[in-house]
Amino acid sequence: MRYTELREKEVVSVCDGRFLGYISDLEIEECDLKITVLFVRQPPKGIHKYFPWLFQEPEIAIAVKRIEQIGKDVILVVEANS
């Protein structure tokens, strides 16, 4: 699966069903070239939408082992580590 395909998927928590955001970056292990962490950022809302450079939303780091399932449109995660 390509990074561009991952970026289009919504990340949702299985525990409470809330929308966490979209994948903004990846952390890759140098030796094995495997993805270890997904960084998720929520889309800006309200005034943040019009001035995104002023208000940076914090990213949520999610370990790959926390991924429950990757579907066609959504990635389900067990728990988000911030």
Rank of each mutant, 00 (worst) to 15 (best):
G46P: 01
S13H: 04
K49T: 03
K72E: 15
L33S: 15
P52Y: 00
K45M: 03
E79I: 07
I70W: 14
Y3H: 09
Q42W: 02
V12M: 10
E27R: 08
E30P: 02
K49I: 00
A63E: 12
V77G: 03
Q56H: 13
Y3N: 14
G46I: 10
K9V: 00
E8Q: 14
H48S: 04
M1Q: 06
D25C: 12
Q69K: 13
P58T: 08
L6Q: 01
E30Q: 04
V74I: 09
T36L: 08
A80T: 06
E27T: 04
I67V: 15
A63P: 12
F19Q: 06
E79M: 11
A63M: 15
A63K: 15
K9N: 05
S24I: 05
I28C: 11
I60K: 10
V12W: 13
R41D: 03
S82D: 10
I67A: 10
V78L: 13
A61E: 05
G46W: 05
E10P: 06
E8K: 14
V64I: 12
L54N: 04
V37S: 12
R41F: 00
I35F: 12
P43V: 09
Y22F: 08
G17D: 08
H48G: 04
V64P: 07
I60Q: 06
L6P: 02
A63N: 14
G17V: 01
Q42P: 05
E68V: 04
E29T: 07
V64Y: 08
S24V: 07
L76Y: 03
E59R: 12
A63R: 13
E27F: 04
G21C: 10
L26N: 06
E79N: 12
L26G: 05
R66M: 12
I35C: 12
L26K: 08
Y22I: 01
E30I: 02
T36M: 10
A80H: 11
L20F: 08
V40A: 02
V37D: 13
I75Y: 05
P44E: 06
C31W: 09
I47K: 04
E68N: 03
Q56S: 09
E29M: 07
D73R: 03
E10K: 11
S13I: 05
E68K: 04
L54H: 09
Q69E: 15
